[in-house]
Amino acid sequence: MKKVVLGFLFGGLLALTAPAHGQSEPVASIESIEQVSNDNTTATLYLRALDWAENHFTKLPKTAFKPDASAHEVRVTGTSKVTPVTVSGKEQPMVVYFDFIFKTTSQGYDYRVTNFKIVTTTGKTVETKSLEEYITQLTADHNDPKTHNARRVTAQANSLASEVALSFRSYMNNTPVTEEGTVGLPATEH
């Protein structure tokens, strides 16, 4: 009798925990957004962001580069890759586009790495679709429990968003020194 009861309890426990392993929830938007307080002028912040986008943005090729000096805004579309795998474990690199958007605010600036799109090919047709839609399709694929592509692609895209955000924030935090000889010296009166 004990074995029968334990069997039912164990079976019930398995039945309750099985749905927790699936990804039935909607896919969260993949992006990195930050608002930063800064005392510099909007023109100074805009010029720093412009310099980063022109000279230090590493996700090439970059397209749709749109600086707007009057709005103190910089937009650029970057390119990278994600690599889902086949059931046999072979990597299938796929191109991903994303937008980097910088805008000054009255207290500093905000920026975002957002609008991820994946390039898909069907026969001779090349198109883009939102990465969230692609991940939803991966989740529905019957091979996803073997390949874990939905989690793999989500993690790679989140890592990419974090990498770009970290690069930009690091660059913005390292303000150039205008007069090298005055660093650490007391101010002099004229």
Rank of each mutant, 00 (worst) to 15 (best):
H56F: 12
H190W: 08
L131R: 07
V164G: 01
K66E: 15
V183K: 04
G108H: 02
T175G: 05
T122I: 06
V183C: 00
T182L: 11
A187E: 05
S88Q: 15
V82K: 05
T104I: 13
S170F: 11
Y109D: 04
H72G: 01
T188I: 13
L9R: 01
Y46C: 06
L160V: 11
Y134E: 03
L6T: 07
K124E: 02
F102A: 08
T182K: 06
T120M: 13
V95S: 13
M172F: 14
F10N: 01
E127Y: 13
K124H: 03
T175H: 05
V153G: 05
V4Y: 06
N143A: 13
F8E: 09
T86E: 14
G7D: 06
D99E: 14
A49H: 03
H148Y: 08
A69T: 05
D141P: 01
T128C: 08
M1G: 14
A165R: 12
L16W: 15
S170L: 14
T83I: 01
P176F: 01
W52I: 09
T77M: 10
V183S: 00
T154K: 12
I118E: 02
K146A: 06
N143S: 08
T42C: 03
V36L: 12
F102P: 05
H72P: 00
A71L: 15
I118Y: 05
E179A: 12
S70P: 01
T175E: 13
A71V: 13
S130P: 01
D141H: 04
A43T: 06
P26K: 15
R75I: 04
S170H: 09
N143M: 11
T182D: 12
S106N: 12
V177F: 08
A53F: 04
Y171I: 15
D68Y: 04
Y111S: 06
L47R: 08
T79L: 02
H21G: 12
A157K: 00
Q156W: 01
V119L: 15
T44P: 02
K81I: 00
R169S: 15
F116W: 11
L131P: 02
P19Q: 06
W52F: 15
L14C: 05
E133L: 03
H190T: 03
V82M: 09
S80M: 02
L16Q: 12
E189F: 12
V74M: 03
L45Q: 08
T42M: 10
M1H: 07
R169N: 09
Q107D: 10
P176N: 03
Y171C: 15
A15S: 06
D144I: 01
S159F: 08
T121L: 06
L13V: 09
P67N: 07
Q92E: 11
E163M: 02
A140H: 02
A165N: 03
L160G: 10
G89M: 07
Y109P: 05
